[in-house]
Amino acid sequence: MYINGMASIAAQTEEDLFAGNLKSFQQNIFPATIVNYKEYIKPMMLRRMSKAIKMGLVAAKQALNEAGVEVPDSIIVGTGEGCKQDTEKFLENILDENESFLTPTAFIQSTHNTVGGQIALDLKCTGYNMTYTQNSVSFESALIDAKLQFAEDPDTRCVLVGGVDELAKTSTPFYNLDGQLKAGEINTAEILQSESGGTITSEGAAFFLLSEIRTQDSFAEISDCMIYREISEEKLEEEISWFLKKNDLKPEDLDAVILGNNGDKRFDHYYHQLQDTIFKNTLQLGYKNWVGDYNTVTAYSCWLGAEILKRNEIPQQLKLNNLEVKQPKSILIYNQYLGKNHSLTLLRSL
């Protein structure tokens, strides 16, 4: 699948990423950057939208704009937790009003497929519209569905695919309760060297306009994507080698690998093992210490990899080793969360 347009909203801006000005945070939960949503969304529509919808719709419109496409044939969205802010609002209404006087807006906006629905409404797109909620492989599930859409429907020319998740004031801090987030004082820039469990979290949206046929606007290719519910650490190297082999690659052919290290001492050994073996001589990049870890953060990593291929430029602050790459052509993204939901995504330059 070819990428013809893409956009991302996260805790760091694209400008800061490539200028080496990434900022660290002192807390384990931090928001995405402020975007002028009014530039893209009419005020009367904007007033009902939670952050996930705003981020998703703006990233989708920017991706379409870059590709010069007004209406895609399909819209496929991945979201781990959907519109949590409106879910909280609706539940709080139920409690505050003793299960009566419930207003429709929060309920309508609270479902997981609201982002995909609002994008379709805004674009007046009546095509296939699907939302995947599969924890930390929600975005990858959407990518695989896009691949299937192209394979099964000859009329599908371009598909809008994205991942989006938002923070919410009550439910996000729940992750403190079961140790998913780091306790104590935090400096996010240093968490990859952490000796404790837990990670940091944030929010964001990244969208891609994909086509099966290469166009004049295509700048990178998503060659393959695979999801594994579980892989034993002993089998991980073998599975990655097999994945690369079916794409006519060997580990040493890769120019860079984007790894999902998130500073959680309990599970980062999956990455460390690869860093010390098959990827020892490959440029290694880490990004979650800058943008946090959330269910669809791999949509950000996909955007990051494609942006590196597009610009021929490596953001220096992401480097986990000291190798230099002048013209990256093949990038592998590997991610897992809490030792489960492993995913591999292969990007290639054109």
Partner: peptide, 17 residues
């Protein structure tokens, strides 16, 4: 003001509440 049908439902709840 440009309100729509969802707003009408909100106003019905407002009257009762």
């Amino acid at each position: 003001l440009g309100l729509d049908s969802i707003d009408a439902l909100e106003l019905i709840v407002l009257l009762e509440k």
